[in-house]
Design a protein around this nucleic acid. Sequence first.
DNA 1: CCAATGAATGGTAGCGCTAACATATGAAAA
DNA 2: TTTTCATATGTTAGCGCTACCATTCATTGG
Lengths: 340, 340
Amino acid sequence: MSDRKSRSSATGQVTLQDVALHLGISAITVSRALKTPQRVSETLRARIMSAVTELGYRPNHAARSLASARSDSVLVLVPSLSNEVFVDTLSGIHEVLIPRGYQALIGNTHYSPQEEEKQLGVFLGHNPDGILLTGLDHTPRVRQWLADCGVPVVYMMEIDDARDSRCVGLSQFDAGQVITRYLVGKGYRRIAYVAAQVDPRTLKRAEGYRAALREAGCYEAGREIWVPTPSSIGLGASLLDRLLKEQPDCDAVFCCNDDLAQGMLFQCQRRKVAVPGQLAICGFNDLAASAWTNPPITTIATPRYAIGREAAQMLLSAIDGDMPPAKLDLGFSLVERLSA
Amino acid sequence: MSDRKSRSSATGQVTLQDVALHLGISAITVSRALKTPQRVSETLRARIMSAVTELGYRPNHAARSLASARSDSVLVLVPSLSNEVFVDTLSGIHEVLIPRGYQALIGNTHYSPQEEEKQLGVFLGHNPDGILLTGLDHTPRVRQWLADCGVPVVYMMEIDDARDSRCVGLSQFDAGQVITRYLVGKGYRRIAYVAAQVDPRTLKRAEGYRAALREAGCYEAGREIWVPTPSSIGLGASLLDRLLKEQPDCDAVFCCNDDLAQGMLFQCQRRKVAVPGQLAICGFNDLAASAWTNPPITTIATPRYAIGREAAQMLLSAIDGDMPPAKLDLGFSLVERLSA
DNA sequence: CCAATGAATGGTAGCGCTAACATATGAAAA
DNA sequence: TTTTCATATGTTAGCGCTACCATTCATTGG
């Protein structure tokens, strides 16, 4: 063994045993020094720590997970990674998880419950200590697995009042209603709703939109445009063309998200349609760019960063103690800008 | 045991042993039926598969990883998740990894080599079968760990001709040079370079910019603005103000990325600065929005999706066989639009 | 002075799975 | 027939770690 670092393990990595042998103590003491330092005398602990550094010991996650039946990892399933909304949510989640020693396993479901089911199947094999899911709509099998596996779950983005579950989010219905009421309050009457990437949340925003228009007595069934393709600025631009052709009399449009709103605005600029003069535009989510376009876009700011943080917090409480299920409504705010 | 599903395991989960017992065969055969189906007779395989489904068996990843010394997971470290560039790269990576049964462990280094070192330390404990890193600049300890651990690594985004390593990317220098030459070719002479979130790649683009200006005989040292804060559209807007104040005579600006370029463009619109009439603007990366602004933004399109795909491909080859180290230059392309 | 107590450390077993080797079985070759 | 050989399945022994219980030893109250 002329190796700079002594390695007893079959796989060539430095093990707890190596550290223990090096110090003439037992492996379990080294394990304790790392996991529960207060249970090892201070002097020995110091020696252990320096040996750990010297030998370059790094805990083997698989072995730890197998022996202790916990993995210090949390599964996070989001519908998209190209949507700023979920990236921000992930940041909030990380901010809480990382300092507590947890690791996030990120899965992208591409807005598909089937894909979500598939991912959950794979990731459950990793024995996550907790699970963070987006939204409330899941396949029966997913619900079954979640019920069976006994791992705490927190649902993000929406609030569910019916079930005995934990969730952190906001009322998508209310948000859709508030911004539509705002448009009504500004005097607009022929208000369209444009949605892409149909998901449960855009459906709920649409319900809020309809409710607001009905209460104002100006609801018309034909004023909605739905496309199933993923949302994007380019799609917003082409949907503006479609809107102007199909509903030339419309005076305002509520886009289900800011991407579409930005695309619509850019296309209005191109076609010399005055915003908000000829057409008022509202978005949803308050993405970073929406404050800087010309005019800046009126939208609903959603607290996605806080949602991530609070959801992670709630999940850790559920993992640690026996915090009972709770709902946390973080609300939203109307951001009045110049596009409406 | 009146449990609907029989569970022998101490942890309550359905194990290979459960499936084996259920069929009156040995665990290893079940293991084989799942990992190397061709080594189990067709009839038995079918029985095993249906028992697996019936009992709801799900492989335990930790146990598999511990026993086989492989984890079927690949570590991916990117500097940011809020940057479209790396999200696209991740998509490319996933597209290759997932069908091959690998799982990506994603770490966000926030553009910090120290954070990268910390993350690598944690993730190495997960025994990744391969590692994908962004860029070529890493701390000495990271380089040491990578050399020691024997896990194949592929570097993404840049091309390194010196070392005996695998990398997939493009020449950031050349790209910076090409777009600057383009501006020079268009007749611009007082060209500024604006960079935020200083990283090795923006530095190399700057070198390309300088080389192009020197060869055209119009290089001036004071025409660069560097800020260390993260790049954003809002920052681009405020840097436009700074540029106009500090270099009122400048006739074109090359932004180190499209976010800044978009912010600058929006601020130009606000301040009624004609683009490209009074000021030409170029970006870098060709983000989705850049094609839709008014005017659309001239930029360098980077093949980040392909980079992710090819890097993952190269990594898997390295894991499987003994593919020798190779460099893959995927190039870039100048996207001429109306902002310059 | 001795038992009782608590703090510090060790021994043992096993988490769920698979590598490596061992064995059984039947078909083809000698 | 016997040997060979490939195919199908089983046995054994760990992977590196921690839960659980046992042991040691100093301290303290009776």
